[in-house]
Design a protein around this nucleic acid. Structure first.
Lengths: 147, 147
DNA sequence: CTTTCTGCAAAAGATTTGCAGTTCT
DNA sequence: AGAACTGCAAATCTTTTGCAGAAAG
């Protein structure tokens, strides 16, 4: 039984190899792992396919992104990671401690359809990130200002 | 006459040095240069301060981001760059041709205040990006599927 | 069979860090 | 004077590439 990502890989002319299947399986694991950092994906996929090489992970992530399953983002430190391209991703980012708080609610869902119609785009998802300071870093900033 | 970034640097306890002023001056240059890539910033700032070292550019960009003047983003290839942190940024991105369509409307404005209250964050701006395929790339995808 | 993949190791880039000498305040 | 900053070069990461052997279609 092949997953939708595996089917897409094959039907787009790519080969379905054990290495790719291991990576794709990690990408399909249930929620809780929303941020796919190449090095972590490698570690997890090696549990399924121990000989897996780092380069194959990079190459497979890029393929999945080009097929529209993943999207490249980076955190406030500029470090790259991938997210699933389905639906939306909503975060609060703190520029003080670089914390990333995922938001459950999606304020832009309705908008997507409207924009798609207006611009003729096929929209597949969105990312909404709010930037600022978390409570702890606000306190730290105040304290520092008083030194 | 010091710019607001220079004043902020000093009042936050950092020193105002020729190297930092050169970098900050580049960041304040009029529109047309919205994306600040470290290497380019170095090149431009060296015109103002030839001895400027690469490390100082990285360090200064990080300081300006921590002070809330800049924000780190990365392009669809994962390359880091900085943008001015003022206001929000709203785009439609095509994953086929990498076109970027700026949106005038901001659907997230009201939300910012609500989230700030709910999470105790001080929010300074946001980025909202919609991903998909533009009309031309949809057509191209259809054509390719028929080959 | 042919073409595409893989894993490895080397290469290429990008970013950070250690330091000794300088420069703000 | 003293703490902070600088430029350089070396050290670290992260990501990409070149290949010879392996394997999917």
């Amino acid at each position: 039984m092949l997953s939708d990502m595996e089917l897409a890989l094959r039907s787009s002319g790519h080969r379905l190899t054990p290495a790719r299947r291991a990576v794709v399986q990690v990408l399909a694991e249930p929620a809780g792992y929303e941020h796919f950092v190449p090095e972590e994906v490698l570690a997890r996929a090696r549990r399924l396919h121990p000989r897996l090489g780092r380069a194959t992970v990079y190459r497979t992530l890029e393929i999945m992104a080009s097929l529209g399953f993943l999207r490249v983002l980076c955190d406030s430190l500029g470090k790259r990671y991938y997210v699933r391209a389905t639906g939306g991703h909503h975060h609060l980012l703190c520029r003080g401690c670089n914390a990333v708080v995922p938001l459950a609610t999606c304020p832009a869902e309705g908008l997507e359809e409207e924009l798609a119609k207006r611009f003729g785009y096929t929209l597949e998802g969105h990312v909404l990130e709010f930037y600022g300071l978390c409570p702890a870093c606000q306190a730290a900033a105040v304290k520092e200002a008083c030194l």
